[in-house]
C-alpha cells in the first residue's frame, strides 16, 4: 500500500506566494479598484457627474443600503443568509414614523427594539433550532412584510413624521454630510474593528470557513450564529428608521428586493457567499458601485432603470466568475 493516498499540495514557491498575494488583494480590493475607475470615467464622460451635490446624493442614497449590507456581511461570513432585511427595513421605517410621536428617542429605539426581536427570533430558530437560514429568513421576508401592511391598513396609510428633530436626523448633517451617511460610516468603522480585531469575529470566520471544525474546536458556534442575525435585524431596522426620517414618512412598500441588493453588494465586495472570508471595506465599495452604476445610467438619461438592473446583474455575474477563478489560483 502506498502511503500517499491523495496528492498533497507541496510547499509553495516564492512565485506561487506572490501570485497568491496578488489574487488575494484583487479579491479584497477589486470592487474599490473598479469603483475608482468608474468614478474617473464617469467624471470625463458626464460634466454633471463630478459635482458636490451629485456625490452627496450618491453618499446619501448608499448610506441606507450600506447599513443593511454591514449586517448582511456578518451573516454571509458565517455561511448564512438573511432574506428578511428588506421587510425588516420597511418595518423599521413604519415604527420610526409611529415612534416619532415620542420624539427622537421613540423614532430610533422603537424600530431597534422590534427589529432586534425579529433578529432574535430568526437567530434562535437558525442557531439553536438548527433550521436552514434560507427558509427561516424567507418566512421573515413574507411575514414581516405582511405585518407592515397590517400596521398600515393594508398599506393605505403612510404614517408621516412631524417631529422636526426626527426629520433633522434624516435630512440634517455635519460638514456637508447627512446624518445617515455619518451613521453609516460609524457603523462600518465599528464593524471593521470588530471584524478585524474582535475575538467573536474569529469565530464568525471559523464558522463560515468550516463549521464542523469550529464545533470540534469547542468554539461557541451557536451563540455566534445567533448573534449575526440579531446584528442584521438591528442594522436593517436602523437603516429603515433613518430612511423614514430622511423621507419624513414610513412607506410600507419600501425595501422590496433590498435583500438582494444587499447580498449583491456584499458579494461584489469580495465576501465569499459560502462564508469564511470578507471585509466591510469591500462591502462599502460594493454598495457604492451599485449606486454609482445607477447614477451613471441616470446621467445618460435615455436609459431606463431596467438597463441599470441588467448592468448590475452582468456585473455581479462577472464578479462571481472572477472570485471563483481567484480562489482557484489561491488554492493551487
Amino acid at each position: 500500500m502506498s502511503l500517499a493516498l491523495e496528492p498533497s499540495v507541496g510547499p509553495a514557491t516564492t512565485k506561487q506566494v506572490t501570485r497568491e498575494r496578488i489574487a488575494g488583494n484583487v479579491q479584497r480590493y477589486g470592487a474599490a479598484i473598479v469603483l475608482g475607475l468608474l468614478l474617473v470615467v464617469g467624471s470625463f464622460a458626464f460634466p454633471t457627474f463630478p459635482t458636490l451635490s451629485n456625490f452627496t446624493n450618491i453618499a446619501t442614497q448608499s448610506s441606507f443600503l450600506l447599513i443593511v449590507a454591514v449586517g448582511m456581511t456578518f451573516v454571509i461570513l458565517t455561511g448564512g443568509i438573511d432574506l428578511s432585511v428588506g421587510s425588516v427595513y420597511a418595518l423599521g421605517g413604519i415604527l420610526a414614523a409611529y415612534g416619532s410621536t415620542w420624539g427622537i428617542a421613540g423614532a430610533v429605539l422603537l424600530p431597534l427594539l422590534v427589529c432586534g426581536v425579529v433578529g432574535i427570533l430568526q437567530g434562535l430558530l437558525i442557531a439553536y433550532g438548527g433550521m436552514a437560514p434560507f427558509i427561516v429568513t424567507l418566512a421573515g421576508l413574507l411575514g414581516i412584510r405582511g405585518l407592515v401592511f397590517a400596521l398600515t391598513n393594508e398599506g393605505a396609510n403612510t404614517p408621516l413624521i412631524k417631529d422636526a428633530a426626527v426629520t433633522a436626523l434624516g435630512q440634517g448633517g455635519i460638514l456637508g454630510l447627512r446624518w445617515p451617511v455619518v451613521i453609516a460610516v460609524v457603523v462600518v468603522v465599528i464593524g471593521s474593528v470588530l471584524l478585524a480585531r474582535g475575538r467573536g469575529s474569529q469565530t464568525v470566520l471559523a464558522v463560515g470557513g468550516s463549521e464542523s471544525a469550529a464545533v470540534l474546536m469547542g468554539l461557541p458556534v451557536a451563540r455566534v450564529k445567533f448573534s449575526v442575525y440579531v446584528v442584521s435585524g438591528l442594522c436593517a431596522g436602523l437603516a429603515g428608521a433613518l430612511n423614514a426620517a430622511y423621507s419624513s414618512s414610513g412607506v410600507p412598500t419600501v425595501g422590496v428586493g433590498l435583500e438582494l441588493s444587499a447580498i449583491a453588494a456584499v458579494v461584489i465586495g469580495g465576501t465569499l457567499l459560502t462564508g469564511g472570508r470578507g471585509n466591510l471595506i469591500g462591502t462599502t465599495a460594493g454598495v457604492l458601485l451599485l449606486t454609482v452604476i445607477q447614477n451613471l445610467i441616470n446621467q445618460v438619461g435615455s436609459l431606463t432603470s431596467s438597463v441599470q438592473a441588467v448592468v448590475s446583474g452582468i456585473f455581479l455575474a462577472v464578479v462571481v466568475i472572477i472570485q471563483t477563478v481567484l480562489s482557484r489560483t489561491q488554492r493551487l
Partner: peptide, 12 residues
C-alpha cells in the same frame, strides 16, 4: 483529538 481529516479552517 486529531482526526483523519484535518479539522481546521482552511481559509484562516
Amino acid at each position: 483529538t486529531i482526526y483523519q481529516e484535518v479539522n481546521l479552517v482552511p481559509l484562516m
